[in-house]
Amino acid sequence: MKIKATLDRIPGGMMVVPLLLAACINTFAPNLLRIGNFTQSLFVDGSSTLIALFLLCAGASINVRSVGVSLGKGVTLLVVKWVVAAIIGCIAYLFAGSNGLFLGLAPIAIIAAMSNSNGGLYMAIVGQYGKTDDKAAYSILALNDGPFLTMVALSIFGAMGFVNGLFSVQSFVSVLLPIVVGMVLGNLDTDMRDFLAKGSDMLIPFFAFALGMGINFKAILDGGIAGVLLGLMTVFITGTAGYFVFRAFRWNPIVGASEGSTAGNAVATPAAIAAANVAFQPLANLATVQVAASVVTTAILLPLYIAFLVKRLEKKGKLEKYGIEKVVKN
């Protein structure tokens, strides 16, 4: 039975198939794998640990000479995603109706969903289509976790005052540290670099499955059509912007598009902001379910959009230019 060969024929199959399979299980039989011990630790609760190990292995592959490139890519991704989210959010506030909504969306939900990205999904996509320095860029992307950048966007166009204490330096360092440990080991000993580098690709389907166990298709129904629209905007606006910016820098554009998602922790952003400023309280609950719908929508749609973009590059004969393997393997 050619399982791996079949997955290789599906664009992003090593990540997409396990993720969607787990999402189906979590939606229709959520307790099937929540039976404790090793099973639950690996298939349900293991995404953070597996991603951390993935980062360590990726870090071991990094030559210290490439750190500058990783930093540049990470900052570029962070800035592009935040600028797009801030612009769309500002437009939403300017043209919001009397009910405070724009196209049925709470502006705070737009900024929260579009400025915050799913790091696990990014790593899964980049793990298949990117290079070592693309993976290392994730340490910079940790800055968009939580409500910090949403608060900055809101403060810039006067929606609220800047609020301190919502971004933890410790959280940022905790993301960066596994990469640093891997880099140290890999640069001190080339044998360790070769040994750890082998684990990078192998971990992708496992943490993709664990990520899928956090997705419930019912969130799309709760968030309604507006929440799905928010997910579509996140994928096609922020993802496409990243694609073209990276292409302009002559970097792999697929990596730029890989930021077109909403992270699960963004669901808590509206409540966090409402707690800091009661002016946002009336729309906080609606914004929460809309962001949740965007999380699920982007988790499903972004891998498909990435597959489309890869196919497009393949038809143009540009896969080799960006160091991407062919989608269909013989």
Rank of each mutant, 00 (worst) to 15 (best):
K4P: 06
A5N: 14
V17W: 09
P18G: 09
N26A: 13
A29K: 06
P30F: 07
S41K: 11
S47R: 12
S48H: 12
L50R: 08
G59V: 05
N63C: 15
V69Q: 12
V69C: 11
K73N: 05
K81L: 09
V84Q: 01
I88P: 06
G89Y: 03
A92C: 03
Y93Q: 11
G97I: 04
L105I: 05
I111Y: 06
A112H: 05
A112N: 02
S115M: 10
S117E: 05
N118H: 15
G120P: 02
M123D: 07
D133C: 06
A136C: 14
A136D: 01
Y138W: 06
L141Y: 00
F148S: 15
V152N: 08
V152F: 00
A153Y: 08
A153V: 09
S155G: 11
G165T: 02
L166D: 12
F167L: 15
F172I: 15
V175S: 07
V184F: 10
V184A: 10
T190Y: 13
T190D: 15
M192E: 13
D201R: 14
F207H: 03
A208M: 02
G212Y: 01
G214H: 11
N216P: 10
G223D: 05
I225T: 10
V228L: 14
T234D: 05
I237W: 10
G239F: 00
G239S: 02
V245H: 01
F249K: 14
R250I: 05
R250N: 15
N252H: 05
A272G: 02
L286S: 03
Q290W: 01
S294K: 01
L302C: 04
P303Q: 05
L304K: 04
Y322E: 04
Y322K: 08
V328F: 12
N330G: 12
N330H: 14
